[in-house]
Design a protein around this nucleic acid. Structure first.
Lengths: 127, 127
DNA sequence: ACTTTGTTCTATGAAAACTAGAACAAGGCT
DNA sequence: AGCCTTGTTCTAGTTTTCATAGAACAAAGT
């Protein structure tokens, strides 16, 4: 899987990494059961510090997306389906963008089309 | 308009303020032409520093949502409709949430329902 | 005139992010 | 058994961001 870190982004490196791993799973580039590189190997590959990768892995584990097996590795493991906590998390995360879309005059259909275009970008390349 | 700042949030205060002002416009609580409080008055009201409010105002101006008139005030002024820059901004902002939704098994319809619930929350209280 | 406006400047404290190096115990492999 | 790799934990340092504070300015509003 291809990861691209932008050091000058206003988004923290470990967050960039977390997001891109999630997007990689959404696209199907990585599947449940697959292993992520070791924190050291990944860090060397990306040109960042080991602890930065480690922080990202723990963020993914907290979200219930990977399982970290001490002395072994990190395996993609999606925890049980979507519950209220996930719903709330996603809602709060999308709120600012949706509000901004409305402010700029986008209709609900416009917004849904925008969302669909993002969904399609992920789903088109599955399998 | 009611603004609620959470000092212990992991979201910066000026970002919280920016988002809530945008949401206030989306809900119709504030309308184009309305003035925002002066940076000093708003800061005193919220219990934060003047510069923090100022930073939020400039973020809103950069987004094209308000017009800051030096020595006068900040007026809600939505710049011309949605262009490619806005589209890209919104897409990038929603990407992480949509990817996470897909990862957890949500269908496109599920995601659209979630989006609709957020849109409705804003639009229900217009006028 | 007087107040209020946004702006600009310097300064400081606190927290977050990132890097660095070292050490540890345990799993995997030969 | 021996060796390498694993994630983990610890201390340490730097840089950046965020938020605060105070002062001063020129100009708009009253």
């Amino acid at each position: 899987m291809m990861i691209r870190i932008e050091p000058d982004s206003d988004i923290a490196i470990y967050t960039q990494l977390t997001n891109q791993i999630i997007e990689g799973i959404a696209k199907g580039d990585i599947k449940p059961g697959d292993s992520l590189p070791s924190v050291r190997a990944f860090a060397a590959d990306l040109g960042v510090n080991m602890h930065t990768v480690n922080k990202s892995y723990h963020e993914l584990e907290k979200k219930g997306i990977i399982r970290i097996v001490p002395k072994s590795g990190a395996i993609i493991n999606i925890q049980n389906g979507y519950d209220n906590e996930l719903y709330t998390r996603l809602r709060e995360g999308m709120k600012p963008q949706i509000a901004e879309a409305i402010v700029f005059g986008m209709s609900e259909k416009d917004i849904q089309n925008l969302v669909k275009s993002v969904v399609d970008e992920f789903k088109k390349s599955i399998d």
